[in-house]
Design a protein around this nucleic acid. Structure first.
Length: 162
DNA sequence: GCCAACGTTGGC
DNA sequence: GCCAACGTTGGC
């Protein structure tokens, strides 16, 4: 079981849309590091923090879980998609995705400022807080996942597994 | 809208 | 394989 943080811009696809969708193919990832995490380390049932970027304030809005194994991202073959990649071939797809399933919203939104307030404390070493980190999918330590959930008002993190 | 910090591309 | 140019991310 691994833990993750995934970023999304709420203007494009926020936690509300995630909730309404139930399960959503996480398409459009065009970064090799992020792809490799999905390909090599994500397992069905892994939990992820759903982070709102490019908004005021940025922060963690909810929890989702991995609902599928990785498979080729169909948008890379769709010429009308902004994620179209002419260099990717159907018999050797370059980009992958997984499905995410909505788990819950944070009872209390955890802003980036609040995360930063623990940057030298309970969240020391969290990748999100490192300067210049632009990864849209990144691994998270279990203890950091638990701390953020508690900051967001989720007391029993173990219940999220069910 | 600005810009720092990256990541990717492509010429050499 | 180096690195300059360019594109993108994301906080502010």
């Amino acid at each position: 079981m691994n833990y993750w943080l995934i970023k999304s811009e709420p203007d494009v696809f926020g936690i509300e849309e995630m909730k309404a969708a139930g399960t959503e193919p996480w398409d459009g990832i065009r970064n090799y590091q992020a792809r490799n995490f999905m390909r090599d380390e994500m397992e069905i049932g892994d939990l992820a923090l759903f982070y709102h970027s490019n908004t005021k304030p940025p922060g963690v809005a909810g929890v989702v879980k991995v609902a599928s194994k990785c498979y080729p991202d169909p948008t890379q073959f769709d010429k009308k998609s902004k994620y179209y990649d002419e260099k990717s071939k159907e018999d050797n797809p370059r980009w992958l995705l997984v499905d995410f399933e909505f788990v819950c919203e944070m009872p209390k939104y955890v802003s980036l400022d609040e995360l930063k307030s623990e940057a030298e404390g309970k969240l020391e070493g969290m990748l999100t807080l490192r300067k210049g980190n632009r990864l849209s999918v990144m691994p998270l330590e279990k203890k950091h996942f638990t701390v953020v959930c508690k900051m967001g008002g989720i007391q029993k993190v173990t219940d999220l597994d069910k």
